[in-house]
Computed example of a mutant assay.
Amino acid sequence: MGVKTKNEATLISILWAVDCMNAHHMNQVNFAVEASEMVGAVNRPKAWPSFSFQSNEILHSLEKMNALKFTQEPHNANRGATLIAQSSSNHPRLQSYVATGGPLWLEELFENERSAALVVQS
């Protein structure tokens, strides 16, 4: 059958991310996704009636944990996640980066992202 639309792929990805965080007992998570329509559907479901199915599925999944935020983030704001996704597609791993604490080859990039985020928050 397969995934037919980008919105369907986005929904599956969000549900998978929530499920993974829950499986790792990470119950206080800020979720940041690119899809502004999904963020709108979760944060203001009545304003996004055409996304009610997606909204209900995500909200039901989030009930299992104490998600702190569900926000929109542009693609270029999370270069580390993009590089990990490309890496895992090109070079399958036997163990998840989440389980091992992240790839060492991205340590400097993540430190730069943390520093930039702290400057923005100040």
Rank of each mutant, 00 (worst) to 15 (best):
F51A: 03
A32K: 10
V3L: 09
H91S: 10
T82R: 12
W16L: 12
S13K: 02
L104D: 15
V3R: 05
M26A: 10
E108A: 14
T100E: 09
V18A: 11
L68V: 14
M21C: 15
T100R: 08
L106Y: 04
V42C: 06
V119A: 14
A9K: 07
V18Y: 00
K64F: 07
L118R: 14
V3A: 02
T5S: 15
A99M: 03
G102S: 06
L94W: 08
P74G: 02
S50V: 04
N112P: 00
A35V: 00
W16H: 08
V120H: 09
T82Y: 14
L83H: 01
P45F: 06
G101V: 05
S96A: 11
N66I: 00
N30L: 04
F53M: 06
R93E: 08
S50H: 13
F70Q: 01
P49A: 04
L109V: 05
E108R: 14
E34Y: 15
P74F: 10
Q121N: 12
R93W: 07
L11Y: 04
R79M: 07
S115N: 14
R93D: 02
A35C: 13
Q72M: 04
E8T: 08
H25R: 10
F53N: 06
Q95I: 13
M21R: 06
S89P: 01
A85L: 03
M26V: 01
E57R: 15
H60S: 12
F53D: 02
T100N: 06
P49Y: 04
R114H: 10
E63P: 00
E108F: 08
L106K: 04
A77S: 14
V39R: 06
V120T: 08
Q72C: 07
Q121K: 13
M26W: 12
C20D: 05
R79L: 12
L118Q: 15
W48N: 11
P49Q: 07
F70L: 02
G101R: 07
E37M: 11
W48F: 15
E63C: 10
V33W: 03
V33Q: 01
T100D: 06
M38P: 03
A77P: 00
K6V: 15
L109S: 05
M65P: 00
L59N: 07
G102D: 07
S55I: 02
N78W: 07
E63I: 00
A81P: 03
S96I: 04
A117W: 12
N112S: 11
V29M: 01
P74T: 01
Q86V: 01
W16R: 14
A77R: 04
V98G: 01
N66W: 05
D19N: 09
A35H: 11
S13V: 03
N7R: 08
N76C: 11
S50Q: 10
W105F: 12
